[in-house]
Write a protein that binds this DNA or RNA. Structure first.
Lengths: 220, 220
DNA sequence: GGTTCTTTTGAACGAGTGGTAGAATTTTCC
DNA sequence: GGAAAATTCTACCACTCGTTCAAAAGAACC
């Protein structure tokens, strides 16, 4: 049939005499499958990424994948779980802490941006491929996603209640705005760019807290 | 699987009879195909939406679609073109107008939010399914998307140059933030919600221009 | 009614998919 | 070295999908 031509990596200790490829030869596991699949899903989409493609990226036939995973959807589920696991607890800590709302918001943005940047592929999948989840798991994810947003919203509400945030802006809309600002990272952020995630987070906090306009401008 | 819902073609000529219950029986055309496909693509994803499903939604076999469209990808292309067509020109007008940057920004946000709200399904597809575009068309879309962002960015730069916007925030990052805020609408906006697109746009402008924090707060 | 043009059908196709089973291979451990 | 366990490969299946096309059905016009 069609023989796939692969690039040969130059810097490998060839253990077997075969004109076969020498791939990274990493020990297969659920973890590495999910990691590799994340990259492919993020780049090409979940539906457009075949198990053959995942196997090939790992230097393995797709049959081998099934020893470590139940099926394709399980990979997707694990990616979603990873994002939630990494995201939820830190935000809960920040929300509960004894801090002024402005500081909470700053930390929440920093946290969210950090996750979005560190786990860029997973984050992309999290917000793009949720339509492929089905059944109770889909509902669980939706619920936890909403709970996460709610934590953000509470911080904004707290600021308004304490009189340090404008009360003209609806907390829900403000939350969606700020989260959208952060989540949009997955559309443009690339590691090694001009700014570090920390710097980006600082910019976003500046924007969300004080806006673009200079206070001494002509307007009120 | 599901049985085919039969149109009542058995009866006599029914040119003016509109009281059908089963299917809309709209005259097939490229336009209605694209419109229906947009809804399905937005809800279930491009890859997961079959031509059978589109045909069924229109009360027609998928073969009939091919009289009006070249192939599945063309539907996607048309959706992308629609979004750009509706978006580009108005923003260009705003960017070129003789207005203070703050007002330009306000109008740009209002415009973008309006498009995102009015064309919610198409907008969702525009930012989610771009991985399915291939060849020169993919590059063209990417270029025009970037050009659109650039117009936004110019407005911010102008504000900084004229000294009415903070110069601490990188214009590119600020633009990504604001656009992200708006584009995130596709994740949560539903027509008929609590706020109108105009109100949402006003909130977003408030946020982007002045931020959440009250100026007279303790901090600097 | 007859002719022509437009539109839809229905069936078929070929490629590609996720998934399975068992043989084959490699690793582990004694 | 060798048995047992762990892991991967090969071959295959059932199915779905996008696409094609000849034939049927409508519509329009005279």
């Amino acid at each position: 049939m069609s023989q796939k031509v692969r690039l040969e990596t130059t810097s490998k200790s060839n253990r077997k005499v075969e004109n076969k490829v020498d791939k990274p030869r990493i020990r297969l596991s659920q973890q590495v499958i999910v990691a590799t699949a994340s990259d492919l899903f993020a780049r090409n989409g979940f539906g457009a990424t075949s198990l053959d493609a995942i196997g090939e990226a790992l230097g393995v036939t797709k049959g081998a994948l099934y020893y470590h995973i139940k099926n394709k959807e399980e990979i997707l589920k694990l990616i979603f779980m990873t994002v939630l696991t990494v995201s939820e607890e830190p935000l809960r800590q920040i929300a509960q802490a004894e801090l002024p709302p402005a500081e909470k918001l700053r930390r929440a943005i920093a946290h969210h941006v950090a996750v979005a940047a560190d786990r860029s592929p997973a984050m992309t999948i999290f917000y793009r491929e949720d339509v492929h989840l089905t059944g109770p798991f889909a509902r669980e994810i939706a619920a936890r996603k909403k709970a996460y947003e709610r934590l953000f919203e509470k911080i904004v509400e707290e600021g308004i209640t304490l009189g340090v945030f404008h009360k003209e802006i609806d907390p829900k809309i403000a939350t969606f705005g700020i989260l959208g600002m952060c989540n949009w990272l997955s559309q443009w952020y690339r590691p090694g760019g001009t700014y570090t995630p920390q710097q980006i987070a600082a910019f976003f906090n500046q924007l969300a807290s004080f806006g673009l306009a200079l206070p001494d401008a002509s307007s009120l």
